[in-house]
Amino acid sequence: MDVAPNWYLALSAVLFTIGTFGVLFRRNAIVVLMSVELMLNAVNLTLVTFSQSMGDPSGQLLVFFSIAVAAAEAAVGLAIVIAIFRSKVTVDITEINLFKH
């Protein structure tokens, strides 16, 4: 069964929006990190859809790099969250406010 590319694009736009709202409104650093990953994966879906519908491989090429980058970011991000947890014993980002504005 063929599904029109527009449906995939709409799905990825919805996922991207869910991710954005997750980053903006969640307070747990781990959940924020997961929301960022959701945003990146939504973009991957967009790239693959365009790539497939245009018959051009360079979009899928970028997806490979983007998966690798997302993995590296997750590793660094979790390490930073662990370092924060060690000193503050919380991962609530509203309580991480050492610098005054």
Partner: peptide
């Protein structure tokens, strides 16, 4: 302080990467 900076930089940087 250094770790807090890193967390802020990381979260906002990854957000903008999206």
């Amino acid at each position: 302080g250094a770790v807090e900076s890193a967390l802020k930089y990381f979260l906002l940087g990854a957000f903008s990467t999206g």
